[in-house]
């Protein structure tokens, strides 16, 4: 221990000596990737923002300034209102279930059972698939006339899954019926199936990081197993939950491939999301400025989650 510490401080001292040239080297090595990111990420975000304020809504670029016209159009558009509703409910459904299932499975797996790693791998494997594969597979499974319904027939129930056009608990709001589209439950099922393994892995890591001593101490104080989880373990998993929410939120707000391969926009746009709308309006309809405006709205919706997280983690670091 002591030896290691001396070694470390020695290394620290020599790096102080070499400080200035190392700093130059570091900057030099960072420069290419810094430039690439500035141009190809932030530059193009800026470009997209600029396009979203123009009249470029045909094949011929028209860069005249249009103000917020494209945004005004979007927020009064039936399809985009439906997209916002769908994204909201999909995100709540998806993140809620991923956290609930991931945490429950992690706690069960943490009971030092036999073959734990086998189970962990089984739950984790869907993560290895791409969303397109998941979409196609679940499209077959939940097809109302050929899929799991053939089995459910014996019980006399025939859910319409992703072809259901009902809006649960819906009421008229703007141009759309606001409520949970029943078809989204089917899509959510597929997404949850794929991503639960990820939150499971995160929670297992979190549980493993909690030293046994804390549990022992709680037991000595006479806490029941339930109380231990409720008051000792769960509060310590809070940072994990925040990370899971951040990662899942940006997946769910930007989701495209799963929906596109599984259902498309859906009847009456019950499964449509901004990503699918952006793709179709830009590359089929040639409404480039409208498409750019959708992209900016998506960026801002992700930023709502990301920016507080980044600020928070900066505070934590310093």
């Amino acid at each position: 221990m002591e030896a290691a510490r001396t070694e470390q401080s020695a290394a620290g001292k020599s790096s102080v000596k070499r400080g200035s040239s190392d700093r130059w080297m570091a900057l030099l090595f960072l420069l290419p990737s810094f430039l690439l990111i500035v141009i190809f990420v932030y530059g193009f975000i800026g470009w997209t923002g600029y396009v979203s304020l123009t009249n470029w809504n045909s094949l011929v670029p028209d860069m005249s300034f249009a103000g917020l016209k494209n945004y005004v159009f979007l927020f009064s558009d039936f399809r985009f209102q439906a997209d916002l509703r769908n994204t909201l409910f999909f995100t709540i459904l998806f993140i809620g279930l991923v956290i609930l299932l991931g945490l429950s499975l992690a706690i069960l797996l943490d009971q030092k059972i036999k073959g734990e790693s086998i189970f962990r791998n089984i739950f984790f494997f869907p993560m290895a698939l791409s969303f397109v594969v998941t979409g196609v597979v679940w499209q077959w499974i939940l097809n109302p006339s050929t899929g799991v319904n053939l089995f459910l027939q014996t019980f006399g129930i025939q859910p319409k899954w992703y072809t259901d056009t009902n809006i649960l608990a819906g009421f008229q709001w703007g141009q759309i019926e606001f409520g949970l589209p029943a078809a989204l439950i089917a899509v959510g099922l597929a997404a949850v199936w794929q991503m639960t393994g990820f939150s499971l892995a995160m929670y297992i890591a979190g549980l493993r990081a909690i030293p046994d001593e804390t549990r022992e101490a709680a037991r000595m104080d006479g806490a029941t197993e339930f109380q231990i989880y409720r008051h000792v373990i769960l509060p310590q998993l809070h940072p994990i939950t925040v990370s899971v929410i951040i990662i899942m939120a940006h997946i769910s707000l930007k989701i495209f491939d799963l929906i596109y391969s599984m259902t498309g926009p859906g009847a009456n746009f019950v499964t449509d999301v901004p990503g699918v709308y952006m793709f179709e309006t830009t590359f089929r309809g040639n409404y480039y400025a409208n498409g750019a405006a959708i992209a900016i709205v998506m960026l801002l919706s992700v930023a709502v989650f990301m920016v507080p997280y980044l600020i928070n983690s900066r505070k934590g670091a310093s």
Binding site: N57, R79, P265, N268, F269, T281, R284, G285, N286, Y287
Partner: peptide, 14 residues
Amino acid sequence: PEGFLTKVNQAVNI
């Protein structure tokens, strides 16, 4: 034009 068609497809879908 394609732009009109995109809108028609949306209206029909609704």
